[in-house]
């Protein structure tokens, strides 16, 4: 019952986001600020995680394939597929649900509990448009983050593979180029766009409609992380089934 109620409320929020838009001059600044807070400030952690996890994925793939009759280039090939199809778009998004999602929920939630949202509303400002819309626009840049994660993940894999002595640079590069399906990139980017929309709106929803005080802001962030990652996982399944299944 409350679940259905919340879904309804969420859809209404999305609708209201496009009503009565904020002055463009102000909106422009908000978009720049949210781009910095959500996308630019995540570059560091995403690069770090991608590079090292890329390395680990490769080492594990290499360990389970060496010394057997598999061709040398297989490690590179498998690394590329794992990272492009699943690691970069999905796992990074779940990490972002923790980083960006809880940031969005707690910043909007604390505006709710300190009546800043009421202050916007009494001035006649559409607070949903003011707060949520710029985040959705900022996260249109999200696929750009995902491409960086793909690139660094594969690079990390290559470094681990070559310096760990699992295979040669040439074999790895040959692997990366083997059987490349451009549609897999399209699929990964479609996923990234959907996840970006989830990352912007689900945490905003949990912050905007929260009730209570400072303690509840913390609880709302946790709840928002859970629902954001669950939505990402569910949509990951649906999109994969639709596009690749």
């Amino acid at each position: 019952m409350t679940f259905l109620h919340n879904i309804g409320l969420y859809i209404l929020m999305l609708q209201k986001m496009f009503h009565k838009p904020t002055k463009w001059k102000v909106m422009k600044e908000l978009i720049l600020k949210d781009t910095e807070d959500t996308v630019i400030n995540s570059l560091g952690i995403i690069s770090f995680v991608s590079f090292f996890i890329g390395g680990v994925i490769t080492i594990q793939l290499a360990l389970s394939t060496t010394g057997s009759f598999y061709p040398d280039y297989l490690v590179g090939y498998a690394t590329r597929e794992t990272i492009i199809l699943e690691f970069a778009p999905t796992i990074i998004s779940i990490i972002m649900a923790g980083k960006v999602g809880s940031f969005i929920t707690s910043s909007i939630g604390s505006m709710r509990v300190t009546e800043q949202i009421d202050a916007l509303e009494v001035m006649g400002i559409n607070s949903i448009n003011y707060l949520v819309f710029p985040k959705v626009i900022a996260l249109l840049l999200y696929p750009f983050l995902i491409s960086i994660a793909m690139f660094l993940g594969i690079l990390g894999g290559m470094v681990a593979c070559v310096y760990g002595g699992y295979s040669t640079m040439n074999a790895f590069i040959e692997g990366i180029q083997t059987d490349f399906t451009p549609f897999h990139m399209t699929y990964a980017f479609i996923k990234s766009f959907v996840f970006a929309f989830i990352l912007a709106t689900v945490p905003s929803f949990h912050g905007y409609y929260m009730k209570g005080g400072a303690l509840e802001v913390g609880k709302a962030s946790t709840k928002s992380f859970i629902w954001t990652s669950v939505s990402i996982v569910v949509f990951n399944f649906l999109i994969t089934q639709m596009l690749l299944g």
Binding site: T114, E115, Q116, D118, A119, V122, M123, G124
Partner: peptide, 20 residues
């Protein structure tokens, strides 16, 4: 008319509600 009225009301909230 509602918008016009709102722009004519100044509000001080219980907790100030400044944009932090």
């Amino acid at each position: 008319q509602k918008m016009e009225l709102k722009s004519n009301i100044g509000t001080v909230f219980q907790g100030s509600a400044l944009f932090d």
